[in-house]
Structures are given as structure tokens and as C-alpha cells.
């Protein structure tokens, strides 16, 4: 019985909720229990946004992630706010293009991925979220990239089907980033 709790945090507009939705759908397609809970507030673009995702083999109790197994931090305020809540032995994935700070914890695995920079270079500057998610698939997820085509087909609305391919590319860049 395994439960993975993920907290994704950043500014509104960075795709925090979409990344969470991707991971939730991935869990669903893998026949696992999932919950997805957004922070919701009057703030939209530019405000803080975060998203709790739980993926489990057992029925999920609270959908609120207070002690994540994995934190994906997309800006400095989010890293500062949540870095100490990550469980010992857990993982922090951060956008090192936006966060110059280093994580001073030796009991967690930290991945510094310059996602915003990589996304810009690849020609899809808004997909830093999926690059970081790709790193998550490599570092934490048990199934990895295997079923991402099915997941993207579910999570990208049919009207925007042309975006499936670049999402896949972004995931791959993050997944392969060393």
C-alpha cells in the first residue's frame, strides 16, 4: 500500500493546477485512488496558487496535503513556505531559473531544474510546469513516462488537441534533464 502526496505551488498562471490535474489523471488511468484539491481564492494570475494531489492504493482520507512526499515549487515564496513541510526522505523539485536559493536540507532529494529557461529555449515558454512534472515522473513516479499519451489525451481538452505534442515534449525535457 503506497500513498504519494504531492504539493505543487507557484504563481497563478504558471499552470500549477494543470500539472496537478495531469498527475491526478495519470493516477486514475493507473487504477489508483486520487484526489486533487486546488487552493482557490480571489487571486488569479500573479497571485499564489497551489494544488494538493494524492495518489494512493487505498481510499484517500484527507485530500489536504500538509506533509508532502514531493514538493514542486515554481517560485521562491512557495519554496520558502513549504520546503520544511516535505517529509524526510521526500523530494523537492524546483524551477532553478526562477529560484536561485539552495535548499539547506540534507534529508530530502532536491532537483534543480531551470524549467522556465528550458521551456523558453524549446519554444513553449508557458510549459515550465510540464517540464517540472517530467522531472517528477523521472524522480518519483513509479510508472514514469509509459502512459503519458493516454493521460494527455484525457487532460488536454479536445479543442486544444494541438497542444498534446508540445506537452509531451515538455514532459520529456524535464524527464531527461540531468
Amino acid at each position: 500500500m503506497k500513498t504519494t502526496q504531492i504539493l505543487i505551488a507557484g504563481f497563478g498562471g504558471q499552470g500549477v493546477l494543470f500539472a496537478g490535474k495531469f498527475l491526478a489523471y495519470k493516477g486514475l488511468l493507473e487504477d489508483r485512488q486520487v484526489s486533487w484539491l486546488p487552493s482557490y481564492g480571489p487571486e488569479m494570475r500573479g497571485g499564489t496558487a497551489n494544488c494538493s494531489v494524492t495518489i494512493s492504493d487505498a481510499p484517500i482520507g484527507s485530500p489536504i496535503v500538509t506533509k508532502p512526499d514531493c514538493l514542486i515549487a515554481m517560485n521562491l515564496p512557495s519554496l520558502l513556505k513549504y520546503k520544511d513541510t516535505v517529509k524526510a526522505g521526500g523530494t523537492i523539485i524546483l524551477d532553478s531559473a526562477l529560484i536561485s536559493e539552495k535548499v539547506e536540507r540534507d534529508d530530502v532529494n532536491v532537483y534543480y531544474v531551470p524549467a522556465t529557461k528550458l521551456a523558453g529555449e524549446a519554444g513553449f515558454p508557458t510549459l515550465a510546469n510540464m517540464i517540472l512534472t517530467g522531472k517528477y515522473l523521472a524522480a518519483v513516479d513509479e510508472v514514469g513516462m509509459a502512459d503519458i499519451d493516454d493521460v494527455l489525451a484525457k487532460v488536454v481538452p479536445p479543442k486544444k488537441a494541438n497542444l498534446v505534442e508540445i506537452n509531451k515534449q515538455a514532459l520529456t525535457i524535464g524527464h531527461d534533464y540531468e
Binding site: 485512488q33 486520487v34 484526489s35 486533487w36 484539491l37 486546488p38 482557490y40 484517500i60 485530500p63 489536504i64
Partner: peptide
């Protein structure tokens, strides 16, 4: 409540 309204589950 707001949590139940906003959360996604299968």
C-alpha cells in the same frame, strides 16, 4: 463546503 466543491476525485 468549499473543499468538497473545489476538489476533484474520480
Amino acid at each position: 463546503d468549499g473543499t468538497m466543491g473545489q476538489m476533484m476525485e474520480p
